[in-house]
Design a binder for these strands. Structure first.
Length: 630
RNA sequence: GCCGACGUAGCUCAGCUGGUAGAGCACUUCACUCGUAAUGAAGGGGUCCGCGGUUCGAGUCCGCGCGUCGGCUCCA
């Protein structure tokens, strides 16, 4: 048989030859360094036979930054970790240990709880194994045999995995450790030249909190120690972009032990907040939204009507007043439905677009709170659109236009997810078929790439979720566009159609920036704190060279302020170098130095990151106003 | 909520095996009046997260609680 190599050449091999055989046929060095075979983009173990006519590529330790090559390396590293865990902590049962983005993990049930000192011990043991030499050996077994093997080994998690597998299963062995594993794996442990165990965490077996909680050990591995160092450096860099760090350094917001999960906004942070709110309000008016304001607190009957009580009462802040059970609103929609029921109900009023940046409270589990990205008190740029069924496409389409207008403005990279019916849905399958197809249709019309998430929809409707990553690559939902046929029914909402009959409107829920808190958090990480001029709390800082220049500098500041700029004057008796450094650290977009050499026609302007030029006042104003205008 | 770690001045952090707390930056004052990323000096500042316990004595050891961080689960 023959296989085709990346350069187009054909390689003649014996029937049943493996990837490793192919590598040997090309050269001994290639065979020694080979780590995997890539065939039609799929990753395959070197030990597996090739097929006639197959296009193959052999990856080696030289492909040290190739994601597939790293995947295999880390997969093998995970097996070494399991071997080490069983050796150091006898009685440990192993669960699963896959490679992941940037590393790998393995889940164990240790006989006794372990702390972080275990990471050091395990890492040493793995190094010892690598030095000692480990080679991977692969074979296949029938399910029943595999099951018997793990029963005899006392590995209940593996037994469960075998039970859900189909047909034959494959095994890998290195040293004293045998694992049920799809592979692929390295030939031996030599290529693992850099390895670090990073953290310990609890993780539920099969991701279900009703199951036993196992101990997950996270680590990472590389072909080259330099790559590990670079990875660690990147994590350090991400720390500098952390919005919690920036919030403190730039005096934007804070948290207090006295209000967990509820940010306190400083004056500077509030400038950003208000600009965003003004902007949203203006944009809403332009797009035919009407602003409303609804209560913060409702009788639990409202939440029973909406269906939230049954599902979410544990996550609501509740209080009892004169024997009545009240709940702080965790979202605006039921309130808006209540308001709709009080408004005129002619088809001529539709689509009715109600917007409200209401204060929402959700009693999130303490363990999930995370800076501004997951809070208990927040404000969404929320809106609810009530429309006739034949208006749904136009309204959905306008929502996505609006959303992408925002994301392009902020230069965000958005991942789109279509979340479909959950198990505990309200309404009929026919309604869900209709609602889901409406969302699919609008996504298709826009040509947006998206992933589908079965079961992730809201209980009242499917949704298009718009996600963005933070500085560490963790994904956060910003926007959401939801089509809801249930709330209007539950609230008995109707409108009178042109046919003089009563109809039930459809309802579209949307938040596009999402919560302002989360948006500001993610956006700070996205920009590293270098906010665009229009959002910068302080746009220009003026530095008089010495006391003699303060008066003129003040006049200049006044003039810029007149023209609508946010200006500060730093006339402290510090050296100019120091004041410039501080302005730079505070990420002020423009610094203007005023001394002997300056005049209205020649201002010394310094932009963020040090770029300098001389500008006339008029030219500067023009530049500033262009940058500040949105 | 669960697993692990952490909680010392406004911030970043040091404080070994228990002997009642320290640095840098920030802040205040004074001097300097400065040309594009840190001028110098002096000074103020701490319920060592909280509550209990062990001890002659606890920032340090133990228990409980709260908060934060990294995960898991959850996310209307």
């Amino acid at each position: 048989m023959r296989v085709i190599l990346p350069d187009g050449k054909e390689l003649e091999l014996e029937e049943g030859a493996t990837g490793l055989d192919a590598a040997r046929a090309i050269g001994p060095k290639l065979a020694e360094q080979a780590v995997l075979v890539r065939s039609n983009g799929a990753v395959r173990d070197l030990r597996l036979p090739l097929a006639d006519g197959e296009r193959i590529q052999i990856l080696t330790t030289r492909d040290r930054q190739d994601p597939d090559a790293l995947y295999v390396l880390r997969h093998s590293a995970a097996h070494l970790l399991a071997e080490a865990a069983r050796r150091l902590y006898p009685g440990t049962m192993v669960a699963i240990g896959p490679p992941i983005e940037n590393g790998f993990y393995y889940d164990f049930e240790f006989p006794e709880p372990v702390g972080e000192e275990a990471l050091v011990r395990l890492e040493h043991e793995i190094r010892r194994q690598i030095d000692e030499g480990r080679e991977w050996e692969r074979w296949e077994l029938e399910r029943d045999e595999a099951r018997r093997y793990f029963e005899q080994q006392g590995e209940p998690f593996k037994v469960e995995l075998v039970d859900t597998a189909e047909g034959e299963v494959s095994f890998y062995r290195q040293g004293e450790f045998v694992d049920l594993c799809r592979g692929p794996h390295l030939q031996n442990a030599k290529p693992i030249r850099a390895l670090k165990l990073l953290s310990l965490a609890g993780a539920y077996w099969r991701g279900d909190e009703r199951n036993k909680q196992l101990t997950r050990v996270y680590g990472t591995a590389f072909y080259d120690p330099k790559d590990l160092q670079e990875h660690l450096d990147r994590l350090e860099e991400a720390k500098r972009r952390d919005h919690r760090r920036l919030g403190k350094d730039l005096h934007l917001f804070d948290f207090s032990n006295l209000a967990p999960g509820m940010p306190l906004w400083h004056p500077r942070g509030m400038v950003i907040w208000n600009i965003l709110e003004d902007f949203r309000r203006r944009e809403n008016v332009r797009r035919g939204y009407q602003e409303v304001r609804t209560p913060q607190l409702y009788d639990s009957d409202l939440w029973r009507t909406s269906g939230h009580w049954e599902k979410y009462q544990e996550h609501m802040f509740r209080l009892e007043i004169e024997g009545r059970d009240f709940g702080l609103k965790p979202m605006n929609c039921p309130g808006h439905c209540l308001l709709y029921s009080l408004l005129p109900k002619s088809y001529r009023e539709l689509p009715l677009r109600l917007a409200e940046a209401g204060n929402l409270h959700r009693n999130e589990l303490s363990g999930v709170l995370h800076g501004l990205l997951r809070v208990r008190h927040f404000v969404q740029d929320d809106a609810h659109l009530y429309c006739a069924h034949d208006q749904i496409q136009d309204e959905l389409s306008a929502c996505l236009d609006y959303a992408y207008f925002l994301y392009e403005l902020f230069e965000l990279e958005i991942r789109v997810e279509l979340s479909l019916r959950p198990d505990d849905k309200l309404g009929t399958d026919e309604e869900w078929d209709f609602a889901e197809s409406q969302l699919e249709q609008v996504l298709a019309a826009r040509g947006l790439a998206y992933s589908r998430s079965e079961g992730e929809g809201s209980f009242y409707g499917p949704k298009i979720d718009l996600h963005m990553a933070d500085s560490l690559g963790r994904s956060w939902q910003l926007g959401t566009v939801q089509l809801d046929l249930q709330m209007p029914k539950r609230f008995g909402l109707t409108y009178q159609g042109a046919d003089n009959a009563e109809h039930t409107p459809a309802m579209i829920h949307h938040a596009l920036l999402g919560s302002l808190e989360r948006f500001i958090g993610v956006y700070l990480e996205h920009t590293g704190g270098d906010l665009p001029v229009w959002l910068a709390p302080e746009q220009v800082r003026i530095l008089p060279v010495s006391d003699a220049h303060v008066e003129k500098a003040e006049a200049l500041a006044g003039e810029l302020r007149e023209r609508g700029m946010r200006v500060a004057l730093d006339d402290r008796s510090e050296t100019l170098g120091r004041r410039i450094r501080e302005a730079e650290l505070e990420k002020i977009p423009y610094v203007v130095v005023w001394g002997e050499r300056e005049s209205r026609d020649a201002l010394a302007v310094r932009r963020r990151h040090g770029e300098q030029s001389m500008e006339s006042l008029e030219a500067l104003l023009e530049e500033l106003q262009a940058a500040a205008m949105v």
